[in-house]
Amino acid sequence: MAQHYVQLNEQGYITRKDEELTKDDDPKQWRQIMIATDAEIDFGVNYKHYRVDENNIVHAPANSDLPTVDQVNKQLAGALDTITKQTEVIEKQTVELNNLQLMLGEATKAQVEAGKLFDTKTAVYQNMFGDVTKQLVEIQTQLDALKGGK
Rank of each mutant, 00 (worst) to 15 (best):
L146I: 10
A79F: 05
K23G: 05
W30K: 03
G44R: 06
G44N: 13
Q7C: 08
M103N: 08
T82W: 05
Q75T: 05
D42M: 00
Q7P: 01
K109L: 07
E96V: 07
G105D: 08
L21P: 03
H4N: 04
D70K: 03
N63Y: 01
N9G: 02
V132H: 03
N73T: 04
H59N: 06
I14T: 03
G105R: 01
K85E: 15
R51Q: 12
N9M: 04
H59I: 02
H4E: 07
Q71I: 06
D53I: 02
T94F: 14
L8A: 02
A110M: 08
M128A: 07
E138K: 10
K23E: 13
Q71S: 10
L97F: 13
A110L: 13
G130H: 11
V72E: 09
G130T: 15
D70A: 12
K17A: 05
V95C: 11
D53G: 04
W30F: 07
T15K: 06
V132K: 05
V137S: 14
D81W: 06
K116D: 15
M34D: 09
A36G: 06
N9D: 14
Q29K: 15
E88P: 01
S64P: 00
Y125C: 09
N46E: 05
N55E: 11
G105H: 01
I57M: 13
Q126K: 09
Q32C: 10
P27S: 15
Q3N: 10
T82F: 07
K74F: 04
T108H: 07
A107W: 05
